[in-house]
Computed example of a mutant assay.
Amino acid sequence: MTKASSSIKSKLIKTAIQVILTVAALAIVLSKTDLNRLWAIISNARPGYLLGAVLFFNISKIINALRLNRFFTAIGLRLSTWYNMKLYYLGMFYNLFLPGGIGGDGYKIYVLKKHHGLTVVNIFGAVFWDRVSGIFALIFLSALLIVPSSFAALYPGEMLWVWVIAGISYPLSLLLTWLFYRQFMPVFLITAVESLAIQATQVISAWFILMALSASSHHIDYLAIFLISSVATILPLTIGGAGAREVTFFYALNHLGLDVNTGIALSLVFFVVSAISSLPGILAKMRHEPGHSLAAVEKE
């Protein structure tokens, strides 16, 4: 078996596993959900609030692209804002619509190495640490939302640990940056602020979805679970996080004794919002391939 065929086989196996896990997770959740009520909630969603969700989701992605470009600049890779934005949205498209294959991050690394002559290790470091900085912000904001949520009433003794997690998240992030990626120390503060802004705008996007679904109470609980479910989608086990997020909502809301249907609706609509927002990436793909190199695009 050639190296190319072996690579294709491994990608197909990865894709098949992602599809199986996604379908299985969704099947488990939907089999235990009132589908008629779920559909009624989604079909009666208010369009104006959904537009707000799309707007703030894309604001989060624009900030994310800007943060990633700061990491690129720190390794000596200077990309124009517009070029970087198009590459970022193209990566979003690959992540969501081409699961198990090249992947958005892998594609960015491939393209930047090909056209800018940097080593894979340097580019990978920038892309990887961009992700890690987002994880620390996600953990920090999750802890802050758990404190005023219904989880605090159920587990009052554990709230001290939640505060500890919130308190050490950024000192730990700073320490790890200094130990392993010291080249990113000059941009640590600004990227940390951007990471918080990214997660905050995604929370606002989720709040708009709750309003669109006419959820009248327990917003903090839904938003806390939304952030916790975002942690669950970090590993690329399912397609675009679908399934993993719904499973988290289902079991967390059942644990709190809250309406599962609203949470599942929030999760499904958020996936649709992310899918719609990823579609502009195909336009970048059409401009880049074939015969229109990304290096040429950068000069536009």
Results as ranks from 00 to 15, higher is better:
S217E: 15
L90M: 15
A27F: 14
F140N: 01
E194V: 08
G263R: 02
T177D: 02
L51C: 12
K9M: 12
L176Q: 03
T81A: 14
L160S: 15
S6A: 15
T73I: 13
A24E: 07
R70F: 10
K108W: 09
Q183F: 04
I17N: 03
V272C: 06
I264F: 04
L189C: 10
A284Q: 07
R46H: 12
F97Q: 02
H218W: 02
G134K: 04
Y110I: 09
I190N: 13
A137N: 04
Y181E: 10
S217R: 13
L141V: 04
H288D: 10
L68I: 09
S173Y: 11
R37H: 10
Y155Q: 09
D259S: 14
W163M: 10
G263Y: 00
I8P: 02
S80P: 10
L154N: 14
F72C: 02
F128T: 07
A215H: 08
L98Y: 08
A74V: 11
Y88T: 06
D130L: 06
A232K: 08
N261S: 15
V54G: 01
G257A: 10
V54M: 03
S230H: 00
P99N: 00
S133N: 11
I109E: 01
M211I: 06
S216V: 09
Y181N: 11
A24H: 04
S169A: 14
S169Q: 01
G157P: 11
W163G: 08
L90F: 09
D105A: 14
L87M: 11
L90P: 01
I190E: 13
L160K: 13
K113T: 14
N44V: 01
N64K: 06
I8C: 07
G167I: 00
K299P: 00
D105L: 10
W129T: 11
A212V: 01
G281F: 02
T81V: 12
E300K: 14
V273F: 02
Q18L: 00
S149F: 03
A152S: 15
L66A: 14
I13A: 11
S277P: 06
I165K: 03
S43P: 05
G257S: 12
K285R: 12
L68W: 14
L256D: 00
R245V: 11
N36C: 03
G106L: 09
S195Y: 02
G100R: 04
P186C: 01
L196T: 07
L55R: 08
I264Y: 01
V231W: 00
G76R: 12
L35Q: 13
V164G: 00
A45I: 06
G117F: 12
W39H: 05
I109C: 08
A40W: 06
S5H: 11
L77N: 12
D221H: 05
Y94D: 03
S216Y: 05
N84Y: 09
G101N: 11
K108G: 10
K114G: 11
S205T: 04
G76Q: 13
A166T: 06
